[in-house]
Design a protein around this nucleic acid. Structure first.
Lengths: 209, 209
DNA sequence: GTATTTGAACTGACTGGTCAGTGCAAAAAT
DNA sequence: ATTTTTGCACTGACCAGTCAGTTCAAATAC
């Protein structure tokens, strides 16, 4: 057992199949929800036999959990990269937040179905993958919280801001604005949406008025 | 305690049963999602036989749709009241927004399960109750957009703000911050959370930089 | 006042269908 | 030669929706 000796993280045939299954599952589950989506549907959409699903994943919910981890991993990496490259360029913390807002928008633009599905599951309780979801959420929000804390430490943000709540509010701002964009005004450009959110961000959050 | 009146309009008993079913359904669906929640569970939680569910509602999804309408009706009324009473008291538009943020928090505080369920379903596609959801969303968001437009017209807000997107972002800010509050720091007071969000709101959004 | 009727509200066993997951032999890919 | 995929039949649990029968309080009759 264990992974085949063919490289680690390389693109095995198996990996390609798993990728197809992720893509099929993410759109179907985003549209219909986890329970309403059948394994047969996922297999069909991925162009694969049902047995293959079970050869690659232990169960339907394991497939879903790994999908969650995979997707949020991409987002977290993207946010981190945005924050770090801003820092490297000597930008302020507001610049970092702004870059992260943009990174968030780019992510949602590229993976709207994943975002949809993530939002739909995040605040549920008593579900099998609850703990996976929590861990994965914390990873992403922590990046935002980190920038806020550094900003407070550097005197760029007021000491009175509530880091945790403010981070959540910022994430929510981007999330809901972006989902609305995709759902109701999909023709607008990313730059356009980014500009509107920047306006909300700038001036505020930073040291008092 | 007068209670079982023979009111001709509609039987009181029936209304009470429907209310119990709403309450049972809202928590179960918030926790598990629509498809994962069975009619048997709803009936059991409501302390009622399964047949009663079908006596009162044409189907599981009709029950859900009416629940959505009922809930968002409460929210919209609450937002409207907040905006209007601020106006009556001669407050500014920022004050109105602030009052609506508080009204939103009060609502989520009182009906966390409904909020959860609403967020989980809002951006799905291809679902039976899609149109109900859209109508109902528009009613609520329109209240916020209205205040923003009035603020722009009165010169209190910059003419450059994007009303639709900004409204969505504000709603998202409150929504996500509140869900995080309820999920991860439920011991905090509403005033506390409101203060943190006010900080984000004030100074910004309002005229120029 | 007591007996009888009415019908809306409610009950819960039952049905027909669906779906996650299994098992396995043969084929294909590497 | 081994790993991966296929195709398909099968099972057992679960579940939305149905329906014949029951309850009970108000309305009417006696």
């Amino acid at each position: 057992m264990e992974s085949s000796s063919t490289r680690s993280g390389g693109s095995t045939r198996r990996e390609a199949t798993r990728q197809k299954l992720y893509e099929a599952a993410v759109t179907l589950i985003a549209e219909q929800g986890f329970s309403a989506t059948t394994v047969d549907e996922i297999a069909e959409r991925a162009g694969v036999a049902k047995g293959t699903v079970y050869y690659n994943f232990a169960s339907k919910s394991v497939l879903f959990e790994e999908l969650l981890r995979h997707g949020v991993g991409l987002l977290t990496a993207s946010l981190q990269e945005a924050a770090e490259s801003t820092a490297r360029a000597g930008g302020s913390k507001v610049d970092a937040l702004d870059a992260m807002v943009r990174a968030g928008l780019v992510f949602i633009d590229r993976y709207p179905a994943f975002t949809q599905l993530y939002v739909a599951e995040l605040w549920r309780t008593n579900r099998a993958w609850q703990s996976t979801l929590m861990v994965v959420r914390q990873e992403a929000v922590a990046v935002v919280e980190g920038v806020l804390r550094e900003g407070v430490a550097a005197g760029e943000f007021s000491e009175e801001i509530d880091v945790q709540l403010t981070a959540a509010a910022l994430v929510g701002m981007v999330l809901v604005a972006a989902l609305d964009w995709k759902s109701f005004q999909p023709e607008r450009s990313l730059d356009d949406v980014h500009a509107a959110l920047s306006r909300l961000l700038q001036g505020r959050v930073s040291g008092r008025a």
